[in-house]
Design a protein around this nucleic acid. Structure first.
Lengths: 257, 257
DNA sequence: TGAATAGTGTCTTTAAGACAGTATATC
DNA sequence: GATATACTGTCTTAAAGACACTATTCA
């Protein structure tokens, strides 16, 4: 916050767009767990999804990618715009005001600073394998971490709704497009991708029917290797047929779970 | 334009949000034709979809509805947000500049007026029966009329893309939710709704399979009346079972064309 | 009775869903 | 051989799609 407040350019709002911002729901998956990257701003007791302002020189997609990069250090992520949110009071919340921020930063924050204005937010969601991410907390936040999608902390503004809508969009997406490239290691087993789908959808899927459909979709390549998993039968490793996977991303309608 | 330029409030941009606006693709259907309401601003040779700025006191949905009402006089329309558009140069176009507008209005328009800024646009689409609409042209436009979706005129900005995306979203929507309530008279025949679906989807649908699915979905009520259509067999009239229709709108997945 | 449109039934193919037993790895 | 996990095949049911003839209205 200090940096932002001190920065004349930003105070004058001629670097960033006004009244419109980006919120980026960063989903992380690993080992049967679906989490969201949330941050706690300004020593408040509530959390937000990652988000930020849009530079006058960049597209909204570029803004979302920049913001995700700042937090995760990752550049190649799967992005999807899912909805925009615009209600006059949507970014009004106890604590997020000039008085409180002045106290926190020691710098006089104008009551009518543009960031307190009515902001329309363009929502994106992002997928990543969270065990690989090194979280980089922003200067403005007291904390930034993964939180299970089913046990979210108290969310600020309308961010609970934003996450719910992102999850709905993700679950709709999974039924029409391949998914998993960003969420699984390069080589993975059928039970691993099966767990991924079950976790995202939040319900169990018959393992026989699941492999049947996934294999007949033709986006998997069976490798001549097995994964060692201890005192159990070793599962075969697979990888995605990237060409068919990308084709499925474009033309859609591959699976219907 | 004159009104806007003269209005101090708007010149100062404290009535409307900056850098964010709404574009509303108003689809009109009647008699096997799907059209879009487009307008020609400022005596330019290009056309735009209807759109406008968002008041600081209203939601983006309310802004879209207000704009649709201003053009069509209709209040109860089907609305759907489909995507937002944000590219720095997206609302840059020959003719849409201070010099040209000054010439047109006779009022000195500042080069840096906020309306020339980078605007992120939230896209909505709307459905209506166009034969019932009395178009009300805005003060800023030289013309405003229905144009067949397949023979659009030269579009300004990125509005060709916006219409294409709206149509894609509409076609996706039609496969998962009931449609037609706003597009058909209260009482309609099976061939009429069949034509509606064919027109929106842009392809033919087997009439036997179509009625089979529509009737088994249970959203139609067959009436004890027939429509007189001249020297031909009289088709039965139907109406929507509004309760089941609305339920289908919420819970979705009714038909799959 | 001819012209135009409404209306309907069956068969085939494909996809979805339910379901359980055998195989393998290690200790 | 005990245990934990991988792997696979068949049957049933439902949905999708292809297809063509009869019925009605009225000029």
């Amino acid at each position: 916050m200090k940096q932002i407040i001190r920065d004349e350019t930003i105070l004058n709002s001629d670097l960033y767009l006004r009244n419109v911002a980006v919120d980026n729901v960063i989903f992380g998956y690993s080992n049967k767990e679906l989490k969201v990257l949330v941050q706690q701003p300004f020593s408040l007791d509530k959390w937000t999804v990652t988000g930020g302002y849009i530079k006058r020189t960049e597209t909204i997609e570029a803004a979302a990618k920049r913001i995700a990069y700042e937090r995760t250090g990752l550049k190649k992520l799967f992005f999807e715009q899912f909805r925009s949110f615009g209600t006059p009071a949507r970014n009004t919340d106890a604590g997020f005001n000039a008085e409180h921020l002045s106290k926190l930063t020691g710098i006089k924050v104008p009551v009518d600073l543009w960031i307190f204005d009515y902001f329309v937010s363009v929502g994106f969601y992002t997928l990543t394998e969270f065990s690989k991410v090194e979280i980089k907390k922003g200067e403005l936040e007291t904390d930034c971490r993964w939180w299970p999608v089913n046990e979210l902390p108290k969310m600020m503004f309308d961010h609970k709704l934003i996450i719910a809508e992102a999850l709905k969009a993700l679950r709709l997406h999974i039924a029409h497009y391949p998914i998993g490239y960003e969420l699984l290691p390069e080589k993975f087993t059928l039970p691993e991708i099966h767990n991924l789908y079950e976790t995202i959808l939040g319900r169990s899927l018959d393992d026989r029917n699941f492999s049947k459909r996934l294999i007949s979709a033709g986006i998997l390549v069976k490798l001549n290797e097995k994964k060692q998993i201890g005192a159990h039968r070793s599962p075969f490793l697979y990888k995605f047929d990237k060409e068919k996977y990308d084709e499925g991303l474009k033309s859609g309608v591959v699976l219907a779970f």
